[in-house]
């Protein structure tokens, strides 16, 4: 399989998985690194393009952000907000404890 110049290592996969809140078993780190490197090697063709002085494109529409006026026009729909919650109580979302 093609190797990108800056290939990801098993350690990188671990870090990326952690950042993404995905669990990867230790014995899967290498295979996933190989898998990602196959894709990254292909992506590295981008290095051939002359991008000197080229502005990055962040949107397919060339406009300024439209803005809304400062009116209270939403909210007040707690039922709707909580309706799909795995757990809620007394108007709150209930989630696993976020502090030790």
């Amino acid at each position: 399989m093609a190797q990108p110049k800056n290939g990801v290592t098993a350690q990188d996969v671990k870090k990326i998985a952690k950042l993404s809140r995905l669990h990867v078993e230790d014995d899967r780190l290498e295979p996933i690194a190989d898998d990602l490197n196959g894709i990254l090697a292909w992506i590295e063709q981008l290095g051939e393009v002359d991008v000197e002085g080229v502005e990055p494109m962040t949107s397919a529409v060339d406009m300024a952000a439209p803005m809304r006026s400062d009116n209270v026009s939403d909210g007040g729909k707690r039922e709707a907000v909580l309706q799909n919650a795995p757990k809620s109580d007394d108007g709150f979302f209930v989630v696993p404890r976020s502090v030790e």
Partner: peptide
């Protein structure tokens, strides 16, 4: 509000 859970208000 709970010993082992967190209550979230957005």
């Amino acid at each position: 509000l709970s010993p082992d859970e967190t209550y979230v208000d957005l």
